[in-house]
Simulated scan of single mutants.
Amino acid sequence: MTTVREIRLKSRPSGLPTAENFELASVDLPAPGEGEVQVKNLWMTVDPYMRGRMNDAKSYVPPFQLGKALEGGAVGEVVASGDAGFKPGDLVQSNLGWREGFNAPAAQVQKLDTRGLPPQAFLGAAGMPGLTAYAGLLRVAALKDGDVVFVSGAAGAVGSMVVQIAKAKGHTVVGSAGGPDKVAFLKAIGCDHVIDYKAEKDLTAALLRAAPDGIDVYFDNVGGEHLEAALTAARPFGRFAMCGAISMYNATEPPPGPRNLFLVVGKQLKLEGFIVSTHWDMLADFHRDLAQWVKDGKVTWKETVFEGIEKAPDAFRGLFSGENLGKMLVKLG
């Protein structure tokens, strides 16, 4: 019998989650049964979308259940196997994060070929956030030659990949992030114009200074004032990839809508929301292109790492105060 710890949802948050919304519990794992594997998690991810699953509301994924372990991407190592397709030592991916280990049917884990990359990269740049950037920019926003690209949340896991993919394809990129460290990071990865939104009194004016002729593509991770600024700066027939709106996730009252939404009509803009799971068919192309970009020195990434399962709630909450530079991860093993 192996004892592991996991983080459960104790209560549903109102506004920004607090430590009281989570509880740390211990679970005893027996030897895996036939067709099962036992996995020791090495890394887990925390992502903004998880905030929506903490609400008891219908969405594109079911809500987390009270008193049950949360879920999310994880990379782990098989320590025991009752399935012929897996052996101890195999690296695997799963959606069974927020716990130090687990037993599960073999069909719930996937073998991980790291292709020479660190395993945790497949929770970030080479995983869901990277594919989100790739699909959102190339398919949803339909990036075209000569496009000027604006990215909000540009120093985060998704945003920083959007910046680098656009630059790898030869585009002018404007990125917005908060604070000098994030500004320096964006400049280091080639972002042409960086806006420190925390230092600007008028975000729209700052964007128009950075892109005086306007923008063609907006990759939205933030919503709110950033969306308003992008609507004002957009050129006719601009395309918006609506990926997230982290500025609104903890709102306790409905936030005001964009005051200039009417510009969508006159400028004939296209605003399209998307979920990365709709675009898994692009994964092979993404990994092929990513490997070449990494080889050519065009793509890199940053990680912010908390250590220990007990720190997972702190890592998650840190997403909403901008504590992460690049991908927020929790190291478990």
Rank of each mutant, 00 (worst) to 15 (best):
T3P: 03
V4N: 11
I7V: 15
K10Y: 06
S11Q: 15
P13I: 05
G15K: 09
P17D: 07
A19P: 00
V27H: 10
L29W: 09
A31R: 14
P32A: 06
E34T: 13
G35S: 02
V37N: 07
L42A: 14
T45W: 03
V46C: 02
P48G: 08
R53V: 05
M54I: 12
N55D: 15
D56C: 01
A57V: 15
K58Q: 13
F64Q: 08
L66E: 15
L66H: 10
L66I: 15
L66W: 12
G67M: 10
K68Q: 15
E77I: 13
S81E: 03
S81N: 04
G82K: 05
A84F: 09
G89C: 07
V92A: 02
N95R: 12
L96Q: 08
E100P: 11
E100T: 09
G101F: 07
A106Y: 01
L117H: 14
P118M: 05
P119A: 13
F122G: 13
L123K: 00
M128L: 15
G130R: 10
L131V: 09
L137R: 07
V140C: 00
D145E: 14
G146V: 10
G146R: 11
G146L: 10
D147G: 05
V148S: 04
V151K: 02
G153T: 04
G159V: 05
V163S: 00
Q164P: 08
K169G: 07
K169C: 02
K169A: 03
T172F: 12
V174L: 13
G178R: 02
G178I: 03
G179D: 13
D181W: 03
V183L: 05
F185L: 12
A188R: 11
C191G: 04
D192W: 01
D192T: 01
I195A: 06
Y197C: 11
Y197V: 08
K198S: 08
E200W: 02
K201N: 12
L207K: 00
L208Y: 03
A211N: 02
D213I: 01
G214S: 01
V217G: 06
V222I: 14
G223D: 04
G223E: 05
G224I: 04
E225H: 03
H226R: 07
L227M: 14
E228S: 09
L231R: 04
A233W: 06
A233Q: 05
A234W: 04
F237H: 13
M242C: 09
G244S: 13
S247C: 02
S247N: 02
N250C: 11
E253Q: 13
P254M: 07
P255I: 04
R259C: 01
N260K: 06
N260D: 06
L261N: 01
F262V: 11
V264D: 01
V264G: 04
V264E: 07
Q268N: 10
Q268W: 00
L269Q: 10
K270M: 10
I275W: 08
V276A: 06
V276W: 09
W280H: 11
D281T: 08
M282W: 11
L283N: 10
R288H: 15
R288P: 02
T300L: 10
E307A: 14
E310N: 06
A312N: 12
G318E: 00
F320I: 01
S321G: 10
G322S: 04
G326R: 02
M328E: 06
